[in-house]
């Protein structure tokens, strides 16, 4: 709490803005998948590369596991997005987001010579969009804002009162 109380207004504003835009990004990724009929992570998983590729491909080929993975993806993304935007349970949401991003990174590592059918929209070497967002969320974890701006403010008050 000490650190939180010492945020200047521009610091607080930029941290909240970062939290909200990352939340937006996750929420819309989830909604877009939810709304596209028959969306499945099959293609993405089958296009994996790197040392973990066999694991992701096996996941893609297994009938039941892929359904579970798809649902975790869709609803996980939506939940993370809502939590970050609204500022509720942001710590858990951030940790979950880090787990998701790790999976995306490990299944499609931007290695030298890695060729993906689903081409990334940019040019990457070792560091990709997932890695950048990962560390942005690490920043959010150590510079929390939801108890100042967000539902956590109310949630923690309730906690304190009890």
């Amino acid at each position: 709490m000490n650190l939180i109380n010492r945020y200047s207004k521009p610091q607080l504003f930029s941290l909240v803005a970062l939290r909200v835009v990352i939340g937006w990004y996750f929420l819309y990724e989830g909604l877009a998948k939810l709304f596209s009929p028959n969306w499945t992570s099959y293609g993405y998983l089958m296009d994996s590369a790197g040392i973990f590729a066999p694991f992701f491909k096996e996941l893609g080929l297994s009938g039941t596991m892929i359904q579970i993975a798809d649902n975790i993806n869709i609803y996980g993304l939506i939940a993370i997005g809502l939590c970050l935007i609204l500022g509720s349970f942001t710590k858990i949401a951030s940790l979950l987001a880090l787990a998701f991003l790790s999976m995306y990174y490990l299944s499609h590592p931007p290695l030298i010579g890695a060729q993906y059918i689903l081409r990334p929209e940019g040019s990457y070497l070792w560091v990709d969009k997932n890695a950048v967002i990962f560390f942005a969320i690490v920043v959010l974890l150590f510079f929390p804002t939801s108890r100042l701006i967000g539902l956590d403010r109310y949630i923690y008050k309730l906690k304190e009162r009890n």
């Binding site: 909604l31 935007i85 500022g87 967000g150 403010r153």
Partner: peptide
Amino acid sequence: RDALKTLATLPVLGAMGYGVYKKK
């Protein structure tokens, strides 16, 4: 003030809803 600070980011969801509606 608490309520304001608690719900400050709620309008973002409204924007998302509007955006998704327009897109759909």
